[in-house]
Design a protein around this nucleic acid. Sequence first.
DNA 1: GCGAACCGCTACTTTCGTCGGGGGTAGCCG
DNA 2: CGGCTACCCCCGACGAAAGTAGCGGTTCGC
Lengths: 219, 219
Amino acid sequence: MTATRVLIVDDEQLVRAGLRMILQSAADLEVVGEAGDGAQALRAVAEHRPDVVLMDIRMPGTDGLTATRQLADLANGPKVLVLTTFDLDDYVFRALQAGASGFLLKDTPPLELLNAVRVIAAGEAMLAPTVTRRLITHYAADSRDRRKQTALHRLTALTDRESEVLVAVGRGWPNAQIGRELYMSEATVKAHVSKLLEKTGSTNRVQVAILAHEAGLLG
Amino acid sequence: MTATRVLIVDDEQLVRAGLRMILQSAADLEVVGEAGDGAQALRAVAEHRPDVVLMDIRMPGTDGLTATRQLADLANGPKVLVLTTFDLDDYVFRALQAGASGFLLKDTPPLELLNAVRVIAAGEAMLAPTVTRRLITHYAADSRDRRKQTALHRLTALTDRESEVLVAVGRGWPNAQIGRELYMSEATVKAHVSKLLEKTGSTNRVQVAILAHEAGLLG
DNA sequence: GCGAACCGCTACTTTCGTCGGGGGTAGCCG
DNA sequence: CGGCTACCCCCGACGAAAGTAGCGGTTCGC
């Protein structure tokens, strides 16, 4: 499997450097370029053909939302992961409408960011927990609408059984113990863990456990 | 291996119940009794012969420090893990002088508490990170004194290489990648991970990774 | 020089994670 | 209605990764 190509777009040099450091810690991700505003981002995309663009919203010149919209219009364009300091409602909805595949805050833990990039590169969507909660509230009014439900479902959504296994993995339990506690065979536990790996974009249970903790599922 | 027997000493019913819940999640630990003050604790120890006593300091009647001192005087007495809300210097030093094997704050994450109980049952010592830092500061004045250094060393003390591996495990890296990044064979990585398991009282790398995060070693 | 601690390694056992598949339920459609 | 599709939950088997046990080599203080 060849590495996922990532372009970093942010007006602050320091932020770009920090993101680059984080991304470089992952062997399966490659930073192919940086840009300081939306216009530069479009040129950089044409030049470097990234799979994923990490996009800041607030930037001088062409802002991130405009750039995201333009990238979304491209045939075979990159996925866009919006990364911003504030989770204002306005930003979230406009970013998603502009075609972003994900929305994370800048205080997101590094590992979660890496997972988000992987998930998005795989064609799925990824939102920050607070953003997800807001989306749910937003959709709550017409929660009977099945299309919107399933759309939400594809974002994070673990099944009941998967959630139980997630917590158990987060406690550091081995599969055999999880099986005993949840009344299923070890083989089934493994199947659920595999699903969790796939859905979270992780490559092993350690990363899943850490995500569980960062999501506040455990003490 | 037979289960480690634990006695819970705290004047608040709710706290005792919470601790009991946490301890019961571990198959290798067994809560053999509870006590509401120091005097009850002594009687309960005589009756139930616990391996480890979880001891609150502030209690009506006989306080935790006094009880700890009395338990430490017993031949073949239990190890005492002091558990308190405040990490006042005074408490820490007096508790350790009284013969406590460990000192944790009540906001310690459950998993870390479990590890602390295991480590202490094994005859080692375990302090909360903030307490450790204070101890180091305390000893810093005469840091050339080797005896005190090694004494400190036996408490938490990971070697340089182990610390590097710990961080890598905390990132969720597989052993092969850790080996490449740190220039050692995968076999050596495993040896270091085994040492980490032993020193932290964990049974697998997931728990170690979580501890690394809770200790603030990673984002 | 001897013991203690650290680092590194090989060889072996145990646990993980993947692959493929069976059985059940619910919606969709001709 | 049957047949199709899409999940979800469950399982056995097998290669891959993790973890254990044990052994050389080095350094450093006694």
